[in-house]
Simulated scan of single mutants.
Amino acid sequence: MQVWIGRNGERFGPYTDDEIRQWLRDGTCRPDELGWYDGMVDWRPLGELFPDERPNVADGVPPMPPSPPPFMGVTDVATPEYAGFWLRFGAWVIDYLILIVPFTAISLGMGLSTIATAFLEQMKTDQVAAFQAYAAAMLPITYVLMVIGYVYYTVFEASKWQATPGKMAVGIRVTDTDGQRISLARSAGRNAVRLTNVLRFPVPLPLICYVVAAFTQRKQGVHDLLARTYVLTGRANEAPAPVAAPRNGDSGRFDA
């Protein structure tokens, strides 16, 4: 494993994990210094990446840190790019068009034509009753379509593609905070927020869930924040290794 180190706002490396372990033991590197390796999104303290390695202490006196390793800055590590609203909206439109086909077939099979005919007939005599009857008759169809859409998003986003066909078409993918494929359980929890589309509140809850993405640093919606996921640009099979870029005056903190 090749590891980069963040020190004084700069990136250095890469080094082997054996070198990092040795430097943590002899005090060359501190556990609170930040590290990154291929596949991670956020930089994390070396003490978290190598929890078993601690400075050697004899007789209660910590060792004097030796000269630092020959750090050499690197500039070829890719910065993650978070998918914005319009990319995600485009993916949603494509997925919607894909789902229309099975949705229509299932709706017709569950009696949509009969429901629509009865609605139009009742509209001639009692419009209020017509809408009430139509809403009640459509509930079973709505629930079935909701479950199908939920399974569609959950399975595809937890798959090796890390994306629905719509997301693949626009070149974005869903990852965990380490830039890795999410589990089926995490995908299920993330997409449970989509079920709020059938709920009614004074302010549309789905609108709140997605508008949040416009104001968060990593363009996360409420479902992303709760599930600790990102939506990044690039397909799963061709995306560069993401890592945060250093910023001046950030005291060595690296944010993705």
Rank of each mutant, 00 (worst) to 15 (best):
F71E: 02
D18N: 10
L226Y: 07
F50N: 02
I115Q: 09
A129Y: 03
A135Q: 13
A83Y: 02
T117N: 14
R247Q: 11
R7V: 05
F89N: 04
P65L: 00
A236Y: 03
D95L: 11
G171P: 02
A133E: 12
P204W: 06
P80I: 09
T229C: 05
R218P: 00
N248D: 12
P240N: 02
T16N: 09
T114R: 12
S251E: 08
I115G: 03
D38R: 11
Y150N: 00
A105W: 13
V155G: 05
A158S: 15
K167G: 01
F156I: 04
N56Q: 12
D255F: 15
V74E: 12
S159H: 10
A227V: 06
M40K: 07
L108G: 02
G234C: 05
G252V: 06
L184P: 01
I98Q: 03
A188C: 08
D59G: 13
M72G: 04
T177G: 00
D38G: 09
V212M: 14
G39T: 06
G179I: 02
Q122N: 13
R54T: 15
R7G: 00
N8V: 02
A133W: 09
V203P: 00
M40P: 02
D95W: 06
A137S: 15
I141S: 06
R235V: 06
R88G: 10
N248M: 09
F89Y: 15
Y82I: 01
G60H: 04
V222D: 00
P69Y: 06
T117M: 15
L97V: 14
A241Q: 11
R54K: 15
L232T: 02
K167W: 01
I94D: 01
G47C: 07
G13T: 08
I148Q: 05
T229M: 07
P68E: 04
Y96C: 10
F215Q: 03
R21P: 00
V101K: 08
G249L: 14
G189F: 03
V77L: 14
V3T: 08
V155K: 04
G90K: 10
V170C: 04
M1P: 07
E81Y: 13
P65D: 00
A158H: 03
V147Q: 03
L145S: 01
R194W: 08
V198M: 12
A129V: 09
G39P: 04
Y230P: 00
D250E: 13
A133H: 12
D59W: 13
T233K: 15
L199G: 01
R186F: 05
I115R: 11
L34G: 11
F50P: 03
T75F: 14
D95Q: 08
P202I: 08
T117A: 15
L226M: 14
V93T: 13
T114M: 14
N191L: 07
I98W: 07
E33N: 04
A185F: 14
A163R: 06
G60P: 04
G60K: 03
M1K: 12
A163E: 05
S107W: 11
P45Y: 14
E10A: 13
